[in-house]
Design a protein around this nucleic acid. Structure first.
Lengths: 151, 151
DNA sequence: CGTGAAACTCTCTACGG
DNA sequence: CCGTAGAGAGTTTCACG
């Protein structure tokens, strides 16, 4: 999809704060409300704007621990991969989950109440599918954690 | 802040889709619009709801590469840390940035147009502050990437 | 804390430039 | 493709149980 400067500015504003009215966005980009509204809907229909969500404070929910889990496996057959992918993605503690290049095969980011809860999660994880090596490391400080992509 | 079942359900709905009207939320939780509205504002004022944002499709923006960078350093003085933290957090390519426990001192997640663009980013990174070891690994597949926390 | 009704604001559509 | 104006929908704020 083609984007001009107006579209990009609208995207930057919306991914910083989706509560703004169309009129506020219009004032900020130097257009009137109607074309701004049209541009937003066009970008939504194109799937460029995936949706609007509320961001919740992780600490406020009592989820004080963010952990990264590094998984290696000897199995790479389609059946294993399917089972592992679905099983892990289904877990609500799992915020991000990637198949990786290099040393580690999978990278999983999870949110837990306490670091001590990792033990229980680990047991759930290895129950899903056989894994040859699992190691984890926790975040001591989240210096930056944004949903804003560079546009 | 104290949360009851209604509050938690509202949070789950809002972090899945913030476009829903208060009336729709009210129907879903089995209340009328007014108390739902009150609960939402209460959670906003408590900082539990950090805000509403638009999520943009990373591929659609032409950002086809997600990379994780693992940084080790020999320096741990406050001055170095301050400079490194601010400098890295300021970069728009940086989506997440954590100070870690264990082997690796810092973990950085970035979004780039292509993997080949990592070279230029690497140069920007090492220009910020001296680093003893930097390695990177790219995501071949994002199996899960959500902003929804378990509540 | 929950309900129901009224003022206000915003969004959205139609139409003209 | 942008702007203006009006209709419709949603939110917000009352008074009240």
């Amino acid at each position: 999809m083609e984007l001009d400067d107006h579209d990009r500015k609208i995207l930057r504003l919306l991914q910083a704060n989706a509560d703004q009215t169309v009129q506020e966005l219009a004032d900020a980009v130097g257009l009137s409300a109607t074309p701004v509204n049209r541009r937003i809907r066009r970008m939504e229909e194109a799937g460029l704007i995936r949706g609007r969500v509320a961001l919740i404070d992780q600490e406020g929910l009592g989820l004080r621990a963010t952990l990264f889990i590094f998984v290696k496996t000897s199995r790479h057959d389609a059946d294993w991969l399917e089972r592992f992918s679905r099983g892990v993605a289904r877990l609500p503690e799992v915020i991000e989950f990637y198949r990786m290049s290099g040393e580690v095969d999978y990278l999983i980011k999870i949110a837990l109440p306490e670091i001590a809860d990792y033990d229980a999660f680990y047991k759930k994880l290895i129950a899903i599918a056989p894994l040859s090596d699992v190691s984890a490391s926790f975040a001591m400080e989240a210096i930056k954690n944004t949903t804003e992509l560079p546009v």
